[in-house]
Structures are given as C-alpha cells and as structure tokens.
Design a protein around this nucleic acid. Structure first.
Lengths: 333, 333
DNA sequence: CAAATAAATCTCAGCGCTAACACTTTTACA
DNA sequence: TGTAAAAGTGTTAGCGCTGAGATTTATTTG
C-alpha cells in the first residue's frame, strides 16, 4: 500500500548532503550554510519526511518525552494541571506521556518504571508520597523531577504548588475575621488525598490561633463529589449542634453543600456560611458565588513544565516554587 | 553518580543465555524452558533492568504508544474520554501520548505528525474534521485509527460515539411528549464544536416532526461554560417571547441556566423547563436533577481503546460503534 | 602569501533492541 | 529404532538516528 516512510538517508540523497547534515538542520544544531539548509528543508518537505523519534532517542539516549503521573482524571483539578503542562510544551518539541495512578502508590511505581523505559527528559508527579522503589528510581535516573501541588515537604528536585496547611489556616482566619464562631468541617476520605488532610490540620491550627475550636465535623467515606458534599452536609447538620459556617474539603463538596441548603431552605450565608477550596468555575456560577481559595492549578502545571525545561540539570539543592493561593471573597461566607 | 543503566546484554550475561533469549522472555514470545525463564527473571530483578523502549521500537518499527488527540482538557467531557482510554490500557504495556488541539485543525495536523514520529500502534482522535494533510497521514500510516464522539459520518477506520443528530431529535421528542410547545434553544459558538451544531439540527428536525418549531434561540459567542449558560438564558428570556422550555447545547450551559432561574425566581419546570446534554454529575446534584441525555464518555474512550488493541489490522470496511445515549429523566423537564 | 582560524561538511561507529533464520536437543510416533 | 516435528536456544544483521572527530573549504591575519 503506502510505500516505505522516507528516512534521513532519503532526504540526504535528495538534497545531496550527508545524513548528518540533515540531522543538524532538523535539530538546528551546529553551523549550516543558509543555502544548504534551504535545500535540505525543500527535500524534507517534498518527501514529507518525519523523523523517527525512537531512533533519535536511542542514538542520543534521551527523548523529548515528559512523563506525567497524575492520581486521577475525574477530579477536574488534574486535567487543569495537565492543561498547564501542555501549554508550556505547546511550542517545544516535547510531548507529555501520561500515567494515571488512581491514588495508588504501587500503581505509580509501576507506571514510573514504564515511563522511565522511554528515557524521558523529565518526570512530573504529584505530592511527596512515593514508594521507596519509586523514590530510588527517580533519584537514580538523574533526570529532572517535579513534584506538584504541595510544598510542605522536601522535594527530590523541585516542588511546585502551594502550602495546603497554609490554605487551611487562611480559611480559618477568614471566617474568624468575619465573625463566625461555630465553624464545622465537611470532608471526604483523605487516605488517598493527603493534601485535604493538610488543609484540615491547617484549619484546626488557624481556629486555635483565633481562640476557636472545630464545632463539628463529618467526613464522607469515599471520594469527593458534589453528591457526597450534599449528603455530608445534611448529615453534619442532622448530627451536630448549632453551626454558623462550614469549611469543605474542596469546592466540589462545597457546591454539593450549597445544593443541600437550597433544597432545605437554609439561608446562605445568614444561617450558614460556606467555604470551599480550589476556586472552580462552578462555584463562581452559583446564585451566590462561593467563598473559597483559588489554587492556581493551571499555573502549577505550566510553571513546573517551564522550570523543568529551563535546565537539564538538577539544582544542587531541592527547589520549592510557591504558586500561592488567593482568597476568593465570594458571597457565601 | 548512578552507574550505567543495565541493558539486555547485562541481563544475558548474568543469566548465561543469549540476548535474544532474554528478549523473548520479556516479550513472552516464543518457547522458553521454564527453568531458563526463571533464571532470566531473576537476573532482571537483581539488576533492576528496565527495557529501553526506544531501542525496542526502533528494532521492531512499532511502539507501544497510543497517540491521543483531544480538542480540549477544559471541558470535563474529554478528560472522561481519556479516563476510559486509560482504563482500557491499564493492564497492557501500552501508553497514551496526548496532544491537545484547542479545536484547531492545523494544530491537530502538527500534533499528528509529531505523534506519528513515535510510530504509535494506533491513533485516537476526535470527530471527522481533519485537514487533508492529516487525513492523508492517517490513511498512509496504515495504523489503526479511531475517530471518537460522533458517528454521523464515514470514518477512516473506526468511529466510536453516538449520533448527535439523534440525540437532538430525542430531546425534541422528549419535550414534545411532555406537552411543552414553546421550546427555545441556548447554545454556544459551534464553529469549533460541530457536534453541538448536529444536536441543534437534530432538535429542529425533531420539533418539526412533532409539528413544532423553535420558539426562540440565543447563541453565546464563545465556548460553553456555566457562566455563559447563565448569561445566555437571561438574554434569551429578555429578547424572546414566551417560552416554556429551553434546550441547552450541553449540561454546562444548562447548569448556568438553572442558576439564572434560581436567581431570577423562575420556577423549574413549572414556568420554564430545562434540558441539557451530557449527563454530567453536576447536573444531577442540582436541587432538582437536570433532565438531560447521558453521553457515555468513559465508555467511548474505553471501547475505542479496546477495539483498537483487539486487532492490529484495519477492517476491510470502516466500522461504526454506537455507544448510544440515554435520556436522563431528571426533574427539570 | 602562508599560516592560523573559523565555517561547513563528511565519515563512521554505535545506541539497545528485535526479526529472521540457523542450529541443537528433545519428544512423538510409526 | 529411525525419522519427523517441536522445543529451546544462538547467531547475525540491521532498525534510523546522533555524537565525536576527521576532513575540506572559506576567511582572516601577520
């Protein structure tokens, strides 16, 4: 059917230069006479030549792949990080190769081995939790490694994200400053989501600093979702005493809580204030925009990819890049 | 620092067999004595050997990569498709390599060339719209190609998705059967999103069959989002005459419409019925679950990947796999 | 104008693996 | 017991590209 794909050799023959010269034109490396370059490019275009990346990787023992390990794609947060990564790679020859770990460290380890087999230029992963084997692989590979989302620990190479503990404290301060005194918490299962736990701990610290204590809490057993937020808030209000504000583990849960209040006729924020985390669009489209904390996911992804590509070598000391967070005032707290 | 990564040769030496034998153990191909296999596996594990995929691809001129081209990651629909693809690849040695086209066919073409340079085992892309060059590349590559989401046209190899025209008709029938007579439409810019246009056309056809006509429409100039749905419905109601039901181009828009109604005190569905498309979680978490059509995105991704991996060769005739759709009754229409 | 330098190009040996086939040993079966 | 087939393993030749260094040509400089 289709005749053999053209190779460097074909281009070289057509342009009447050596293969190596063609290779140099393609990679824009080394001195090339303008006239030669033109001839080579013409040959490439007339043949429709596309370089074989596998051969290139093998010969140079490095590839144009950035390995990306994400815990999930169901949570919109990670696609947004991925979007940031893609934005940074858009005008480069690099490609992202993605693995989804389902919050499972062993799965992460397996995928990591699989990614490293491509000799990627860098690895982007999430959080600081890795198996010993994963950590060893990352250390030994010598390639650049970014650990995203969190900055409350010491990274292997670089960490890009925000202080979740700090974000938790900030929510406490915000609510305390607004005069809320009986503050509850609604969360999801944080066995997998360590960052949610950090925010919770930050929240408690923040409350304590304000001379307050958590007035009630309910943790849904399972992942976060709008539905579970709705049920969890209902549950908290059923069990608990009188509460004038609720901090949710994230916006998905908070939106669910909002829905519960709408259904149950609870005035927001007069009878109950709601506070989320992430700053998702959906929260801002509610009849009253959700009070929350914006976590800059896109920026995290983009910054990580840009930083990794900026230097091939790891810095002598692990580096932490704080992409920060902002309180979104909203109208629910 | 880290000593050289072990290669096949190292494993072979340690296990006292030829490289080829090791290769056959790894790929599980050809007859191997049980005792030899054990020795080889031991050697592999003791060295921590990880095969170099670039070398493998080069030698076999085929790779374990599935190239995936998605128009966007902002719209939750595509991460869900991707999740389906990953689910299908999870227990295989294949990896997904992703490109994001931003609904730009030229960008798609560029990314496609870039993906083909890895000699992927298959390509997954979206819709039937491609540049001529893209189409040529896909045809000539000879590898398996899946075109996702839509099935209202003739695919290159296989199409997996649903009939958007059919979904549009179904919404019309549903609303007509419920006694709604003055039905409006709220959509987004469909220059990029051809499927939204198909649904719109299906809707008009469906209405006509029921002896009705569109009672008003408003198309927001820009992408779909909760915010734009909210504004667009407000606009439609301001402009339009009396309308008793609105079909939105998708659930994001519809949720926005719901929010507008909440704010404006419009009773749903008594004064105004709302109907979406996609069946997103958020729609079901509203105080009244959204009436909509479920589009089975996860299934589309999974089915596509499974089908592609099931056979290395294209079938003689292009194949269409209808993953169908279901009306989600909800409580808004 | 020769020597020194820079610019442009070429030659050649792999990178680590797999495909194809050759070879040896074992097993099956008449 | 002989022979054919199957099982198990080895040998060899690349896959298409890049890196290092050699070689040629053009340019500068004393």
């Amino acid at each position: 059917m289709q005749r053999e794909a053209p190779t460097l050799a074909h281009v070289a023959r057509l342009a009447e230069v050596s293969e190596n010269t063609v290779s140099r034109v393609i990679r824009n490396k080394g001195p090339i006479a303008e006239e030669t370059r033109k001839r080579v490019i013409e040959a490439i275009e007339s043949l429709g030549y596309v370089p074989n990346r596998a051969a290139g990787s093998l010969a140079s023992s490095s590839s144009l792949i950035i390995g990306v390990l994400l815990p999930s794609l169901s949570n919109i947060v990670f696609p947004e990080v991925l979007r940031g990564i893609h934005a940074a790679l858009a005008d480069t020859p690099y490609e992202a190769m993605i693995g989804v770990t389902d919050y499972d460290l062993l799965q992460e380890q397996k995928l990591l081995a699989s990614l490293l087999a491509w000799q990627p230029a860098a690895i982007v992963t999430t959080g600081f939790d890795h198996t010993d084997a994963s950590r060893r692989m990352l250390l030994q590979s010598g390639i650049r490694v970014a650990e995203l989302m969190d900055i409350d620990d010491r990274p292997i190479d670089i960490a890009v994200g925000l202080s979740h503990r700090g974000a938790g404290r900030a929510s406490a301060r915000h609510l305390a400053a607004r005069g809320y005194r009986r503050i509850g918490y609604v969360g999801h299962d944080w066995a997998a989501d360590r960052r949610a736990r950090f925010r919770y701990e930050g929240l408690r610290e923040g409350l304590q600093e304000a001379g307050l204590a958590l007035a009630g809490e309910f943790r849904f057993e399972g992942g976060s979702s709008t539905m579970s937020g709705r049920e969890a808030l209902a549950q908290l209000l059923r069990d608990g005493g009188d509460i004038d504000a609720v901090v949710f583990s994230n916006d998905d849960m908070a939106v669910g809580g909002f829905m519960h209040c709408l259904g149950a006729g609870i005035a927001i924020p007069e009878r109950l204030a709601l506070f989320g985390f992430n700053g998702l669009d959906i929260g801002q489209a509610l009849p009253r925009p959700l009070s929350t904390i914006r976590s800059n996911r896109f920026l995290i992804g983009r910054t990580a990819a840009e930083t990794l590509l900026a230097a091939r070598e790891r810095p002598p000391e692990p580096q932490i890049i704080d992409t920060g967070f902002e309180i979104v005032e909203g109208a629910t707290a």
